[in-house]
């Protein structure tokens, strides 16, 4: 692997992350369940129907710990709740592991824990197991949090990154780029007249409503690291289909568009923490959009494209000018351009 050492880009969610998983983790750890590379694994236990239990885990490292619209605690609960929800599961229980750096103010830790409690309460999950470790000053970045969760999948629900079929509609629950830019501008000390706020939110309530009107939903994915473009590429690859999306149909808040313009970033590659992509049979499109727009976390939901049989594994973007181009995956960290 490149240079033989871990680079920050290996954590970006883009191609380098994929290579790390494929070339280093999978050869040693793979099995039928892990090999699916889904947001959450569907597992079997004695006495339970096959595929009715979902499990997922996620670790959270974010600088700054507190940002407009959320903090690392809210993120840690929502992240795992959302990973479970993206398999159509109803999240039930979470575990939480803290790695704390010596010197962290207890007041900060409490603020984080209060925020986790609020997020868990909103999502309707219980935190039922926990662990704390402390590392020496300089060995951590204040707080690292890992959460793991389990949830149940109702009979008849089959949601997987591999299920998209040509003809399916591609819907997006709202505007992209809010979270990543809120973090980035706060981290770099950039100030804008319109404040940028993270969209961090638990999406299981929204998913519940969506499955209520369309149990045939085939794919759900929350476009976190690597953004919408990377998530669409992963789904195109996992399902062996092409995806065609319209640039003009993808909602982006004006402040995000402006900040991206200034920093030379593309909001389609910026992280979200409270958005989802759904692929479903066309017959469901109107019902889905209606329940999504009726939910606080789906108000700006839009149909952004279609699953196609052309160019399996590729995502094609119809630009605002009506021309077509490839929408590629993120390669490493997204870096601001020079001029």
């Amino acid at each position: 692997m490149s240079d033989g050492i871990v680079l920050l880009g290996h954590g970006s969610g883009g191609i380098l992350s994929q290579e790390l998983i494929q070339d280093l983790f999978m050869p040693h750890l793979t099995n039928e369940t892990l090999g699916g590379l889904e947001d959450a694994a569907l597992i079997s236990l004695d006495g339970l129907a096959v595929g009715s239990l979902a499990m997922s885990t996620d670790s959270f490292v974010v600088k700054p710990l507190f940002f407009p619209g959320g903090d690392i605690g809210k993120l840690a609960v929502c992240g795992t709740v959302n990973d479970l929800a993206m398999r159509g599961a109803r999240p039930l229980y979470l575990s939480v592991g803290f790695i704390l750096e010596e010197g962290l103010p207890l007041a900060d830790l409490e603020r984080i824990v209060v925020s986790m409690a609020a997020a868990a309460s909103e999502a309707g999950v219980q935190i039922v197991a926990g662990d704390t470790k402390v590392v020496e000053r300089g060995s951590g970045d204040g707080v690292f949090i890992n959460t793991a969760g389990i949830g149940v999948v109702e009979p008849g629900i089959r949601v997987s990154a591999a299920n998209a079929q040509p003809g399916d509609v591609v819907l997006l629950s709202g505007a992209v780029g809010d979270h990543g830019l809120a973090i980035m501008t706060r981290r770099e000390g950039l100030r804008f007249e319109t404040p940028l706020e993270s969209d961090c939110a638990p999406l299981n309530g929204l998913v519940d409503n969506m499955l209520g009107v369309c149990p045939e939903i085939r794919v759900l994915r929350d476009p976190t690291r690597g953004g919408l473009a990377t998530a669409l590429n992963e789904l195109a690859e996992a399902s062996g289909v092409g995806i065609s999306v319209g640039e003009a149909d993808i909602p982006v808040h004006p402040a995000v568009a402006a900040a991206s313009e200034l920093l030379g970033l593309d909001p389609l590659y910026v992280a979200n923490e409270g958005k989802l992509i759904v692929m479903a049979p066309e017959a469901c499109a109107d019902d889905l959009l209606e329940v999504m727009r009726a939910h606080p976390y789906g108000r700006e939901a839009a149909c952004i494209g279609r699953v196609t049989a052309d160019r399996p594994g590729r995502v094609i973007l119809e630009t605002t000018l009506g021309t077509r181009r490839l929408l590629d995956m993120l390669s490493g960290e997204q870096l601001p351009r020079i001029c």
Binding site: D3, I5, G332, L335, P336
Partner: peptide, 19 residues
Amino acid sequence: FGDMIRVPGTRTSLQGARA
């Protein structure tokens, strides 16, 4: 400036040097 850090030099890049 940001996009300089990935550019390969002879042995590694600034990103590699950072790691």
